[in-house]
């Protein structure tokens, strides 16, 4: 039958033919759609990650300062030297503290937004959470440096309220205290918390939104007190969101090198160590080994979370 005989189906153009091809061979469309992201992820991203991993097994010649392209575990052994292990421990502790604090802080906000906020209030929530992400990261960090500085508004407010000695007592705490908030771990912590909080709130809110209201009613109906409902129903169901959020806050803190450089004591975090090692020191293998640490920590973290059943509700 020729096309001319069928007025309902006029002659086919090239677009039509293409659609026909996609219909007859669905994998062609799938391949076309997947090729660019796969190229990007597979070659550019995974490729460079493998290259990085590879270089971490090289070592540096102590006399010439040249990279020796032979596979060895020497560089990893170097990671365990007290000065380097300190950096790792410090960074991991900070990342854990930031993650726990942002989970605690984010939960009520996310819960309110998921369960109670409607219409305008929901829009206000999204705007409020996302707005900080729209301004430059550096601007925010420098703003915090000023806020937390000895002459800054926080000190001023504490003194104005006659609570200056409370602030001084907090700053007098060994290790996490310091000369002022902006030169202490507390300051670094506060800025990390502020900067990464949206990354915890949004996935948490998304997972809480998926918990049907009748699920909570069923729990109460069966005799659970609100606290029990929270522990046995809300928390487990929100866990995938909490884990997703904590992956952000944890890994972002693990990798950041700007915040601890601007706000905090001058002791190094992993990101800073990588930055220094690959730049001035030219010790690419050790920088690479340092960069592998957050990846390992995250893998262990996810394995533990999985073992604890954090993804059961997925």
């Amino acid at each position: 039958m020729s096309a001319a005989l069928d007025p309902a189906h006029p002659a086919r153009g090239p677009g039509d033919r293409l659609t026909g091809l996609f219909w007859r061979r669905p994998w062609v469309l799938l391949a076309l759609l997947l090729a660019p992201p796969l190229l990007w992820l597979g070659v550019v991203y995974v490729g460079s990650l493998v290259a990085l991993l590879w270089q971490s097994f090289y070592s540096i010649d102590e006399f010439s300062g040249m990279v020796v392209p032979e596979l060895t575990l020497k560089t990893y052994a170097e990671l365990l030297r007290p000065s380097n292990a300190d950096v790792i421990l410090r960074t991991a502790t900070m990342a854990a503290a930031v993650t726990v604090a942002s989970a605690v802080l984010a939960f009520p906000i996310a819960y309110y937004a998921a369960r109670y906020a409607k219409g305008r209030w929901k829009a206000a929530f999204y705007l409020g959470v996302m707005l900080p992400l729209w301004s430059s990261y550096l601007v925010k960090v420098y703003a915090w440096k000023l806020i937390l500085a000895k002459e800054g508004i926080v000190t001023w407010a504490f003194e104005g309220l006659g609570a200056g000695n409370i602030l001084n007592a907090v700053l007098a705490i060994p290790v996490i205290g310091g000369n002022s908030l902006s030169t202490s771990y507390i300051g670094t912590f506060l800025v990390f918390l502020y900067v990464w909080l949206p990354f915890m709130i949004l996935p948490m809110q998304a997972s809480l939104e998926r918990v049907p209201a009748t699920m909570l009613e069923a729990s109460g109906d069966l005799g659970a007190r609100p606290g029990q409902t929270f522990r046995h129903v809300i928390l487990p169901l929100a866990m995938p969101g909490v884990i997703a959020g904590s992956i952000f806050t944890f890994s972002l803190t693990l990798g950041d090198y700007i915040i601890p450089q601007i706000v905090g004591s001058s002791r190094l975090f992993i990101g800073q160590a990588v930055y220094t090692l690959q730049g001035t020191a030219g010790n690419i293998p050790l920088a690479a080994a340092f960069a592998v640490v957050p990846i390992l920590i995250m893998l262990v973290y996810l394995a533990v979370a999985r073992r604890l059943g954090a993804f059961d509700a997925l």
């Binding site: 009748t214 729990s219 069966l222």
Partner: peptide, 17 residues
Amino acid sequence: NRRHVNTVFQDYALFPH
């Protein structure tokens, strides 16, 4: 939670986890 009444919900509301 303090009423001697229990409900079978329309969507069953079973705890998926």
